[in-house]
């Protein structure tokens, strides 16, 4: 029973989310954000990166240019995602289920060099 109350919809997962490579400009020019996201997504599944991205778009991003961050319901191609400093491709990409204390870094490769 205790397990069940732990995972009810009110539960949140604390995470550190970072933006760099120019992406920070879409997030109030701030690179590092401590956020808490719901432990369950809209359909009641464990929150994954795809949900995190939608959540950030709706709740953290003040800039209206959502398409610079999100495309086809996932991270826009050209933006690298590092989960605890490892390529998200090693972790199942946007299906990775976020865990308490995770550090998720979004790095744009699209900006000028």
């Amino acid at each position: 029973m205790a397990e069940k109350t732990k995972t009810n919809k009110e539960d949140f997962i604390p995470l550190t989310v970072e933006f760099s490579g120019g992406l920070e400009m879409l997030f109030s020019n701030q690179k590092k954000h401590d956020v808490s996201i719901p432990a369950r997504d809209e359909s009641g599944n464990s929150s994954n990166i795809a949900f995190l991205v939608r959540y950030l778009c709706d709740n953290l991003m003040k800039d209206p240019k959502k398409e610079f961050f999100i495309q086809d319901n996932t991270v826009r191609p050209g933006i690298l995602v590092l989960i605890n400093d490892a390529d998200w491709q090693l972790e199942g990409e946007d299906e990775y289920e976020v865990k308490k204390g995770d550090n998720i870094l979004f790095v744009s490769t699209l900006h000028g060099g």
């Binding site: 760099s20 490579g21 120019g22 400009m25 590092l82 790095v107 490769t109 900006h111 000028g112």
Partner: peptide, 21 residues
Amino acid sequence: YEKEIVLYAHHKNLDYFSTEC
């Protein structure tokens, strides 16, 4: 690859500037 360039910079902690013109 651009991906590897960005990750090289990241893992080597290189100091670079990124913003759009």
